[in-house]
């Protein structure tokens, strides 16, 4: 009975990842995308633990989840550092500006 509850929770988290993906794809600024990706990473950490519970091998997946949490944090900090340096990336999509530049 409990494994069905875990399955339902895991499905709910997967469904919650999609709105974050919308934010990560749709901007409007680069930093909004970073927030979206960061939230996806946090949810994935929990999802990994739930997968471990469902397949009854938690002791293996907990290590993966730990490493994933570390990597997610480092990726966020690194991306922030990078975009802090480059002033011109700041607002809106660079794709639009490239098109405007070529036109």
């Amino acid at each position: 009975m409990m494994s069905q509850v875990f399955l339902a929770v895991a499905l709910a988290i997967v469904l919650l990842i999609f709105p974050c993906l919308v934010r990560a794809l749709g901007g409007p600024t680069v930093l909004d995308r970073i927030v979206g990706v960061n939230m996806i990473g946090t949810k994935t950490t929990v999802l990994l633990l739930l997968i471990g519970l469902i397949y009854k091998d938690l002791s293996m997946f907990v290590d993966i989840a730990l490493a994933y949490a570390f990597l997610n944090f480092i990726a966020t900090i690194g991306a922030c550092k990078f975009f802090r340096r480059s002033k011109q990336v700041h607002l809106e999509d660079d794709l639009v500006t490239e098109e405007e530049a070529s036109a």
Binding site: T42, L66, A69, F70, F73, I77, C80, R84, K87
Partner: peptide
């Protein structure tokens, strides 16, 4: 340990993103 780490890391990441946004000028 993961929970403790997230407690440490989440405000730090938030802080890094706010500061980057301030410097870039959002």
């Amino acid at each position: 340990a993961i929970v403790f780490f997230i407690f440490m890391a989440s405000p730090t990441a938030t802080h890094a993103m706010t500061k980057a946004a301030m410097l870039v000028g959002v």
